[in-house]
């Protein structure tokens, strides 16, 4: 869907991005991860030509974007940014309607779509006539997301989309974001410096440093097969939490006791990560839940059994 071939960009004497190439598959969520100044945002902004590359090619849907009118290109790509960038002189519905207006949609179609999105994003209806400064930070970010999604673009670029939010709002919006059906159909490139967030949301992660790609792969690959020291050290601080997120019930299935008690509650999703399963257990009084693997077989587990299985899995992995 999106392909970068040997893309470079310099600002004055500093080379921000050096010869970067990667592919993003359709409906995939690729996260560009790295410290600030690693070139991830520059890379993202070159995809909708907010920044023009010095060298290399960027191809979206089979077309080289340098041959397209940049304004028309951008109208077809959703863009969400950390600072949200809502127009302070437009009310919420006008803000969401910017791109439909540019594309000359008729008002009825626009309004229908806005109503639909506002519902999906859990925004109160009366906020449509309010101005951005009257909304909370979380609401503003939802409006920013609605604005990017309103024309249902196939590609979505997100620059630290949750960066400006406090921790509580942030995790709840992240969860909504993950659950949003609308986003599952999209090819997404997202920039973040937050490792947890990357592991939570990414299909694949592209770890960058000093304008170059260090490693590109699934969260699991990054965690268990780092290509060099930098990649290992980058994740070291939060390794346990990341493992909980990466390892799924399916991976531990053989280490979990074979028992099922029908009275216990079921976990929210099929084949949850250890992290999610722990969250579910923590929420129920009995301290026990039913989890399912991808074959929809169920087992009832408690916290201790889960951690035990995890330790056995790790031991097993290490001696494989």
């Amino acid at each position: 869907m999106i392909e970068l071939k040997g893309v470079s960009k310099s600002f004055g004497h500093t080379q921000a991005v050096k010869q970067i190439s990667f592919k993003v598959n359709e409906k995939e969520n690729l996260v560009l991860l790295g410290t600030s100044g690693c070139g991830k945002t520059t890379t993202l902004k070159m995809i909708n030509r907010l920044i023009e590359p010095d060298a290399g090619e960027i191809i979206i849907g089979g077309q080289n974007i340098t041959h397209q009118n940049p304004e028309i290109l951008r109208r077809g790509i959703g863009y969400v940014m950390q600072n949200i960038g809502l127009f302070p002189h437009y009310n919420v519905s006008e803000n969401i309607a910017v791109v439909p207006k540019l594309l000359k949609w008729d008002a009825i179609k626009t309004n229908q779509r806005i109503t639909e999105l506002v519902e999906k994003l859990h925004l109160p209806k009366q906020c449509l006539t309010m101005f951005p400064h009257e909304l909370s930070g979380g609401q503003q970010q939802r409006v920013g997301l609605a604005r990017a999604l309103v024309t249902d673009p196939a590609v979505l670029l997100m620059d630290e989309p949750f960066g400006a939010l406090d921790n509580v709002t942030r995790s709840s919006i992240q969860a909504e974001f993950k659950a949003l059906e609308e986003l599952k159909r999209k090819t997404i490139v997202m920039v973040t410096h937050d490792v947890q967030e990357a592991f939570e949301l990414a299909d694949r992660i592209c770890l960058m440093d000093k304008g170059e790609i260090v490693q590109i792969g699934t969260p699991k690959e990054l965690l268990y097969h780092p290509t060099n020291d930098f990649a290992r050290k980058f994740l070291d601080g939060q390794r346990l939490a990341l493992e909980f997120k990466v390892i799924k019930i399916n991976d531990l299935w053989d280490f979990l006791p074979k028992q099922q008690s029908l009275e216990t509650e079921k976990a929210d999703q099929l084949n949850p990560s250890i992290w999610d399963a722990m969250e579910s257990i923590r929420k129920v009084e009995s301290g026990k839940i039913q989890v399912a693997n991808i074959q929809s077989e169920h087992k009832t587990i408690d916290f201790q059994q889960l951690t035990q299985a995890f330790n056995q899995y790790k031991y097993h992995k290490a001696h494989e």
Partner: peptide, 12 residues
């Protein structure tokens, strides 16, 4: 950021 978001939305 407001100007950048206007550009990103595809305004001329």
């Amino acid at each position: 950021h407001i100007i950048e978001s206007a550009r990103a939305l595809g305004m001329s």
